Lab assay of single mutants.
Amino acid sequence: NITNLCPFDEVFNATRFASVYAWNRKRISNCVADYSVLYNFAPFFAFKCYGVSPTKLNDLCFTNVYADSFVIRGNEVSQIAPGQTGNIADYNYKLPDDFTGCVIAWNSNKLDSKVGGNYNYLYRLFRKSNLKPFERDISTEIYQAGNKPCNGVAGFNCYFPLRSYGFRPTYGVGHQPYRVVVLSFELLHAPATVCGPKKST
C-alpha cells in the first residue's frame, strides 16, 4: 500500500531547467500520482495528452512514469508532439509516433530571460542525422557541412553544433522561453508502482 505522493513538484518547480539538447529525465516510481494538482495549476500554456485522457489519469496505474524537462522557445512547443519535424524534434528531443503521455508547457519569461540576454539555454542546430525517439545527444563535436574534414576547428563550413537562445524579456511570445515537462507513461508486464489516488488503496 503506497502512500507517499509522487515528487512532481520537484520537477515542475525546479529552480533551473535543462537546455533542450541535454534534456533532463527523472524516473518516478513507487508513489501516488495526483495529476489533478498539475491539471489545476493555472499558468499552463499547453497540457496535451496522447493515448490517454488527462482527466482519467487519476484512475490509472503505470509501471513507471518518466518526467523529461527542458526549455525551448514558445514557437517550438508545437514540435513536442508525435510525428513532428523541425530543429527541436529532429536534433534535440524526439517523441515516438506511438507516444503515451502528456506534454505540459508554460511561459517562463520572468524566470529564464535576462536584460542583455540569458545565454545559458542551448539547443542543437546541426546534426548529421535525426534523433531516434528519446535519444539524447550531448556531443559538442564540430559539425562538418562541406567535404573538408574540420579536425575539431570551427570555421568555413565547420560549425559548433550548439546555439544559444539568448532570451531577453522584451522578445515577442514566440521567442520567449517556455518550460516543458513531458510525462511518459510506461506500461510493462510488471507490477504497477505509480497509481492515481483512487487506485492506491
Rank of each mutant, 00 (worst) to 15 (best):
37 V>H: 11
61 C>Y: 07
75 N>H: 15
92 N>W: 02
24 N>A: 11
31 C>R: 07
20 V>R: 02
196 G>E: 12
170 T>W: 05
40 N>S: 13
112 D>T: 02
149 P>S: 07
13 N>L: 08
76 E>A: 08
178 Y>C: 11
57 L>P: 05
118 N>P: 02
107 N>E: 05
184 S>D: 06
41 F>N: 12
157 N>K: 02
24 N>R: 15
38 L>G: 04
177 P>C: 02
14 A>I: 06
124 R>S: 00
135 E>K: 07
121 Y>P: 07
17 F>N: 02
93 Y>F: 05
33 A>I: 15
25 R>P: 00
8 F>R: 03
95 L>F: 03
165 Y>S: 01
110 K>N: 11
159 Y>Q: 00
89 A>I: 05
184 S>L: 08
126 F>N: 05
50 Y>S: 02
169 P>S: 06
5 L>S: 13
56 K>I: 09
1 N>I: 09
180 V>P: 00
139 S>A: 11
72 I>H: 01
176 Q>W: 02
37 V>K: 15
187 L>F: 11
182 V>Q: 01
81 A>D: 04
137 D>K: 03
166 G>M: 04
188 L>S: 15
88 I>S: 03
185 F>H: 04
82 P>N: 02
5 L>R: 14
55 T>C: 06
132 K>Y: 09
88 I>D: 00
134 F>P: 02
68 D>F: 04
29 S>K: 11
129 S>N: 13
192 A>Q: 12
47 F>D: 03
56 K>S: 14
12 F>A: 06
109 N>M: 06
139 S>H: 09
24 N>P: 03
106 W>Q: 06
83 G>L: 09
18 A>L: 05
6 C>P: 05
52 V>W: 07
145 A>H: 01
22 A>G: 08
164 S>L: 04
156 F>H: 09
167 F>H: 00
73 R>T: 10
100 T>Q: 10
92 N>F: 01
72 I>L: 13
105 A>D: 00
155 G>D: 06
52 V>F: 12
84 Q>V: 11
11 V>K: 03
103 V>L: 03
53 S>V: 11
70 F>Q: 00
150 C>K: 02
104 I>P: 00
141 E>T: 13
76 E>F: 03
100 T>Y: 14
132 K>M: 11
139 S>N: 11
29 S>F: 10
39 Y>N: 15
168 R>C: 01
19 S>V: 01
168 R>S: 02
100 T>H: 10
55 T>D: 15
12 F>H: 03
101 G>E: 00
32 V>Y: 12
151 N>A: 12
37 V>W: 13
99 F>G: 00
195 C>F: 10
129 S>I: 10
174 G>R: 06
61 C>V: 10
72 I>G: 01
35 Y>E: 07
172 G>T: 00
190 A>E: 14
10 E>T: 10
8 F>T: 04
162 L>Q: 02
23 W>C: 01
140 T>S: 14
102 C>H: 03
69 S>N: 05
200 S>P: 14
161 P>A: 07
80 I>A: 02
175 H>V: 00
132 K>F: 09
170 T>V: 01
120 N>V: 10
59 D>W: 09
22 A>M: 10
6 C>S: 07
24 N>Y: 07
44 F>S: 13
174 G>H: 06
127 R>H: 05
95 L>W: 01
136 R>C: 07
100 T>P: 01
71 V>Y: 01
40 N>Y: 08
135 E>D: 09
121 Y>L: 12
192 A>H: 14
47 F>P: 08
103 V>D: 00
185 F>L: 08
30 N>G: 10
189 H>V: 11
82 P>A: 03
29 S>D: 10
97 D>H: 13
129 S>Y: 10
88 I>Q: 02
1 N>C: 07
139 S>E: 10
74 G>S: 04
40 N>Q: 14
15 T>G: 09
162 L>R: 04
125 L>H: 05
184 S>V: 11
107 N>D: 04
166 G>P: 02
64 N>A: 15
173 V>M: 13
117 G>R: 03
150 C>P: 01
183 L>Y: 02
79 Q>F: 03
23 W>F: 11
13 N>P: 03
47 F>H: 09
121 Y>Q: 10
9 D>W: 11
60 L>P: 08
146 G>D: 05
135 E>W: 05
70 F>W: 01
64 N>M: 10
90 D>Q: 15
148 K>S: 13
129 S>H: 13
77 V>T: 00
115 V>G: 09
156 F>M: 06
195 C>P: 12
11 V>W: 07
170 T>Y: 04
191 P>Y: 10
179 R>E: 00
96 P>W: 03
34 D>W: 05
96 P>L: 03
176 Q>C: 02
104 I>V: 10
84 Q>Y: 06
1 N>P: 13
29 S>I: 08
116 G>N: 11
105 A>C: 09
89 A>F: 03
173 V>N: 11
40 N>I: 06
166 G>S: 11
136 R>M: 08
28 I>K: 03
29 S>R: 11
50 Y>E: 00
138 I>W: 07
133 P>Q: 07
36 S>L: 08
60 L>E: 09
108 S>F: 02
91 Y>T: 04
24 N>F: 05
151 N>S: 12
177 P>G: 02
7 P>T: 11
48 K>N: 13
115 V>I: 15
12 F>Q: 04
155 G>H: 06
49 C>M: 03
4 N>G: 12
135 E>Q: 12
149 P>D: 14
165 Y>L: 05
107 N>P: 07
164 S>N: 09
86 G>M: 03
186 E>I: 07
166 G>A: 12
109 N>H: 06
51 G>R: 12
73 R>F: 01
97 D>A: 13
48 K>D: 10
91 Y>R: 09
101 G>D: 00
43 P>N: 10
195 C>E: 12
127 R>G: 07
121 Y>R: 03
46 A>Y: 14
156 F>N: 06
108 S>M: 04
26 K>I: 12
177 P>V: 02
4 N>D: 13
81 A>W: 07
185 F>R: 04
169 P>W: 04
84 Q>G: 12
176 Q>P: 01
74 G>F: 03
131 L>N: 04
129 S>T: 15
44 F>A: 12
80 I>D: 00
141 E>N: 14
141 E>V: 10
3 T>E: 11
55 T>S: 14
130 N>A: 15
23 W>I: 02
71 V>R: 02
145 A>R: 06
74 G>P: 01
6 C>W: 05
36 S>H: 10
48 K>C: 05
190 A>H: 13
161 P>V: 04
4 N>F: 09
70 F>D: 00
94 K>R: 09
37 V>S: 14
4 N>S: 13
142 I>R: 02
153 V>Y: 12
42 A>R: 13
96 P>D: 06
57 L>G: 06
153 V>M: 15
5 L>Q: 14
19 S>W: 03
80 I>C: 01
108 S>E: 03
79 Q>N: 05
34 D>F: 05
149 P>C: 08
64 N>Q: 12
194 V>G: 13
123 Y>M: 15
113 S>V: 01
58 N>P: 14
17 F>W: 15
21 Y>V: 10
110 K>A: 10
127 R>K: 08
39 Y>D: 15
146 G>F: 03
149 P>L: 11
33 A>D: 06
193 T>R: 12
140 T>I: 09
145 A>E: 02
